[in-house]
Amino acid sequence: METILSVKNLKKSFGSLEVLKDISFDLARGEIISVLGPSGGGKSTLLRCLTQLETIDDGLVAVDGDVLFGDGKYADKANLSRITLKIGLVFQNFNLFPHLSVMENITVAPIRVKKMPKVQAQELARNLLERVGLSEKADYYPCQLSGGQQQRVAIARALALDPEVLFFDEPTSALDPELTGEVLKVIRGLADRRMTMIIVTHEMGFARGVSDRIIFMENGVIVEEGPPEQLFTAPKNPRTRDFLSRVD
């Protein structure tokens, strides 16, 4: 299968703290990976490095054949912008723009970045809102929506740029338990359409059901990876076994 994202020996430190020690993995087009592991293990930092929110210290990262970071330096600006549009990120805290309506939140990037005509962008936004089940909320402001609805708008906003890969950074961690279901349902819908995704989550049951592969991370390293059934039923590494037994 075609590799859409390739990460080799990725390293990242904050001061003297090594957050990502030596991360390597490939993501194939259409593949869904869930990243599990205890807090502070480097899961979010990994996503943030790949979306250019944190600077990479060392290693090689290539997205859809374009090198994002390699030989100790980043690609040039034009390449970086192109790569930015290929990866979407859904934040834990949604980070919707509170002063813009739901419609504007979704259309601002297509209009500004992709130079899409406004009418076309709004048409796209309406389709996406329908997909996340919020057709009637286009003219609302984020503060008028529940957390679950806000996160679904954030997913629609990320999809509006038609990314090759979509990252989720603990998409349900900021939500009340009764609201996580509606968000997970939307992500499951994306999975049914074979959207390529990396999902950092603490929702074990969800990760097990939706993923093609699970990566278990701790202390900045990938401790174990494999198909969900194998990882959940017969984890090889004692650390993985320990973690899964404590959360289940």
Binding site: T51, Q52, L53, S81, T84, L85, I87, G88, L89, F91, N93, N95, L96, F97, V108, A109, R112, V113, R157, A158, L161
Partner: peptide, 19 residues
């Protein structure tokens, strides 16, 4: 997070500042 959202959506620093 607001600036980060702008950046991830491909908005430039100036666009993020003004929009």
């Amino acid at each position: 997070g607001q600036r980060e959202a702008g950046k991830v959506l491909g908005l430039s620093g100036t666009e993020t500042f003004f929009i």
